[in-house]
């Protein structure tokens, strides 16, 4: 586990890293948890014009407190519209949703995700909730951002089940399968670093190490080979301003802890 300076924890670092990826005047499909915190933080810093959309129908809310359920009334509090899933999913399929957040129990080197089963599908060792809206977001959003814990089981050479499409089996595979052109995973944020996908091979590559983390730690916590560039960044820790905003957004520490 990496060293964390006083004043912030890893979840706060991940929330800030995710928030900084979201551009102003774009739209983002979010669920509950860290993605919601990240989107609200982005709105209160560099992206006041970020449009937040919830799959169950909340569009452009101003949540007074952190929602705890994807259809929570807080997801359409002072929203521009309280709509339907047909509406939000259609908007995503038509191309209106820029970013989408995903979680993962397993991820492979092409950014494909498993959230369905561990073990055999018919009689699984562990049954997980399934796609939910993840397959839809992973199919439709222009860019998806995955936030997950990283270790050798989770960064898997072979997924037990491919729930949500990343780049499938490599360059051009999404388009060949019929998925919307030019879409796909954009970043992966773990407790160790931030990853992107190589423009040609579409394989996972390291972009940034969190403070105190080494390349060896990144390698040791993956069952597949991660592309390591010659130069990489160090993830900027949360600023005091960001930490203050996080405390306002999530005062109970529901998603970012205390």
């Amino acid at each position: 586990m990496s060293q964390v300076a006083p004043g912030y924890n890893l979840r706060k670092l991940q929330a800030c890293a995710a928030a900084r990826l979201l551009e102003d005047k774009r739209s983002v499909f979010v669920g509950t948890g860290l993605p919601m915190v990240a989107a609200m933080l982005a709105q209160r810093t560099h992206a006041p014009g970020l449009l937040i959309v919830f799959e169950a129908g909340g569009i452009g809310p101003r949540p007074p407190v952190l929602p705890i359920s994807v259809g929570d009334s807080r997801t359409f509090f002072r929203a521009v519209a309280a709509s339907s899933m047909h509406d939000t999913m259609s908007a995503a399929q038509a191309g209106y949703l820029d970013y989408g957040f995903l979680g993962a129990a397993q991820l492979d080197m092409y950014g494909n995700i498993n959230t369905t089963v561990i073990g055999d599908w018919r009689l699984p060792r562990a049954r997980l909730p399934g796609s939910g809206g993840a397959n839809d977001l992973g199919s439709f959003c222009h860019r998806t951002i995955i936030i997950m814990a990283q270790d050798r089981r989770r960064f898997a050479r072979k997924l037990d089940f491919l729930t949500t499409p990343g780049y499938l089996d490599g360059p051009g595979a999404r388009e060949r399968a019929g998925l919307p052109a030019g879409s796909g995973p954009y970043r992966v944020i773990t407790q160790l670093g931030i990853y992107g996908f190589h423009p040609e091979s579409k394989r996972l590559q390291l972009l940034s190490l969190h403070p105190g983390v080494t390349v060896d730690q990144v390698r040791d916590n993956s069952d597949f080979e991660i592309l390591i560039p010659d130069r990489m960044e160090v993830t900027e820790p949360p600023t005091s301003e960001e930490l203050k905003l996080l405390a306002e957004i999530d005062p109970l520490g529901i998603s970012v802890g205390k």
Binding site: T116, G130, S139, T164, G178, L179
Partner: peptide
């Protein structure tokens, strides 16, 4: 018709079909 589930095990274990549009 829709453009989700394509290329995945979610499709393979669904009751859907894939056709050429």
């Amino acid at each position: 018709p829709s453009r989700n589930m394509l290329g995945t095990d979610t499709f393979a274990r669904s009751a859907c079909k894939i056709a050429r549009d």
